[in-house]
Amino acid sequence: MTTEQLHEVRLHVNGSVHEVRVPARRLLSDALRHDCGLTGTHVGCEHGVCGACTVLVDGAPMRSCLMLAVSAVDAEITTVEGLTEEDGSLSPVQQAFSDCHGLQCGFCTPGFLTTITAGLRETPDPTEDEAREMIAGNLCRCTGYQNIVKSVLRAREIQAEIQGERSRS
């Protein structure tokens, strides 16, 4: 068999540039995990259903298992590793998951965190139904989703608290 052509790809992830050499078929999920070493993004199905691999592409949640790394060159990608605040503390969404026991084995969690982070930008003050709708495309086998829905609402609260503090100071 002939040697597979490799492509030089510059991936912009969490504000840094990763230069990787990958074949065209390299899935973005694999490139992030294995070439960039960002193993926080998980792979649960590789056919777009589970959502564990969800990353933000120019701010919008997308399945990294259904994108090719070569096709992601022009995009700014955010993975779970890029969600924490600049000082290293947990983001409101991450903190909310901790407060509400929104995770058990943690495998689905990165996909939920990215999805909700974007979701709260679009719907900053969700009702419980909207919170459920926000996470409705991600599978979790452990939590039964009860505490993930609570986490969405709690994240909204934390965000409001932070904004309150900011506007006061």
Partner: peptide
């Protein structure tokens, strides 16, 4: 009591088997 393991999971720093030896 809030879970101590959550800290690493929430930061994407869990180490599942496919994460090992990647480098």
């Amino acid at each position: 009591v809030p879970r101590v393991e959550d800290q690493r999971f929430l930061r994407g720093q869990g180490r599942y088997v496919d994460d090992l030896l990647t480098d």
